[in-house]
Simulated scan of single mutants.
Amino acid sequence: MPEPNRRSPRTRPPQYRRTPVDPYRDHLRRRLADEPGVAVTRLLAEIREQGYPGSATLLVRYLTQGRADPAHTPPSPRRLVAWLMSRPEDLPDHRRRHRNDRVACCPQMTVLAVRIGAFATLLTGRRGETLDAWITTVRDDDLPALHAFVAGLENDHDAVVAGLTLPSSNGPMEGANTKTKLIKRQMYGRAGFSLLRQRILLS
């Protein structure tokens, strides 16, 4: 008899949609921290004075889910990585605040966010000449995972510098190669080389 499904410790936290309560989350957090037993009706009155348009039921559900307490709804590693890899100004206000809270609570995370931002500037600004300085800085940090990334960069140092400096790339060639492989997979077992050649030329 198969064993019943058991919740894995790696199960991701629930993914909640944005609600009208989100803009008032910081206020709710402060109030719950200052007065843990505060009545929901009082919280409802306070946020309605600030413009909250939703219902009491929605607020109760929001509080019950623990969404006013960041410790109860930690972001998944994948989501946190996505926040770190995004420009802070491109994130919605509530996500940017959540990102900043998570980054500020850990010294390693603070340093990691700074290093990622510096590398993004290096990448988008085509500043390959500053790569060595960035690598030297990262080596002094207590970030083993980033050290592995740096080791990969150093293994192909000249190509990485060229990619971060020159405006040209092998992107078009890689695209043509991928397209050719796709056509080959579509034709597998159906035709010979002459038809494959014709399709590649026509595409």
Results as ranks from 00 to 15, higher is better:
Leu164Asp: 07
Lys179Gly: 10
Arg18Leu: 08
Ala33Gly: 13
Ser168Val: 12
Val111Gly: 09
Leu131Gly: 11
Pro167Cys: 00
Thr124Leu: 10
Leu164Tyr: 05
Thr121Asp: 15
Arg102Asp: 14
Asp26Phe: 01
Gly125Ala: 04
Asp22Gly: 02
Ile47Lys: 00
Glu174His: 02
Leu202Arg: 11
Pro4Phe: 07
Pro70Thr: 00
His27Pro: 00
Arg199Cys: 04
Val103Glu: 08
Thr11Trp: 10
Asp156Glu: 10
His72Trp: 03
His157Ala: 08
Thr19Arg: 05
Gln15Ile: 12
Asp140His: 15
Pro92Val: 05
Lys181Trp: 04
Thr73Glu: 11
Arg99Ser: 03
Ala120Leu: 10
Asp158Pro: 03
Arg79Leu: 15
Gln186Pro: 00
Leu143Tyr: 13
Val160Gln: 10
Tyr52Arg: 05
Tyr188Val: 01
Arg31Ala: 12
Leu80Trp: 06
Asp93Leu: 09
Pro20Glu: 12
Asp132Met: 05
His94Phe: 07
Ile183Leu: 12
Ser168Pro: 01
Ala148Glu: 15
Ala104Pro: 04
Ser203Val: 00
Gln186His: 11
Leu63Asn: 08
Leu59Arg: 01
Glu154Trp: 07
Glu154Lys: 14
Arg199Asn: 04
Ala145Pro: 04
Arg95Pro: 00
Cys106His: 11
Tyr24Asp: 00
Gly66Phe: 03
Leu196Val: 03
Leu143Gly: 12
Val138Gln: 09
Arg25Pro: 06
Pro2Trp: 01
Arg87Asp: 15
Glu89Cys: 07
Pro2Lys: 09
Gly189Asp: 05
Arg17Leu: 05
Glu3Trp: 02
Trp134Ile: 06
Val38Ser: 05
Gly51His: 00
Ala159Val: 09
Leu91Ala: 08
Pro14Thr: 11
Gly152Val: 02
Arg126Leu: 13
Ser168Lys: 13
Thr136Val: 07
Leu112Val: 01
Arg139Glu: 14
Leu143Ala: 10
Pro53Ser: 08
Thr137Glu: 15
Ala118Phe: 01
Leu196Cys: 00
Arg190Glu: 04
Ala113Thr: 07
Gly171Ile: 00
Leu80Met: 14
Asp22Met: 00
Gln108Gly: 15
Leu63Trp: 01
Ala120Gln: 14
Pro88Met: 02
Val40Met: 01
His157Ile: 02
Thr130Ala: 12
His94Val: 04
Arg30Ser: 07
Tyr62Asp: 03
Tyr52Ile: 03
Pro144Asn: 13
Pro144Trp: 07
Thr130Cys: 01
Leu28Cys: 05
Met173Leu: 15
Arg10Trp: 07
Pro92Ala: 08
Pro167Asn: 12
Ala45Trp: 04
Asp69Phe: 01
Leu196His: 05
Ala33Leu: 14
Leu32Glu: 12
Pro36Asp: 08
Ala162Phe: 07
Arg99Tyr: 03
Lys184Gln: 11
Pro77Met: 06
Asp132Gln: 13
Ala176Asp: 09
Pro172Cys: 05
Glu154Tyr: 02
Arg48Leu: 10
Asn170Trp: 12
Val138Trp: 08
Thr180Glu: 11
Pro14Arg: 13
Arg99Thr: 08
His94Pro: 04
Gly152Asp: 14
Glu46Lys: 02
Ala45Met: 06
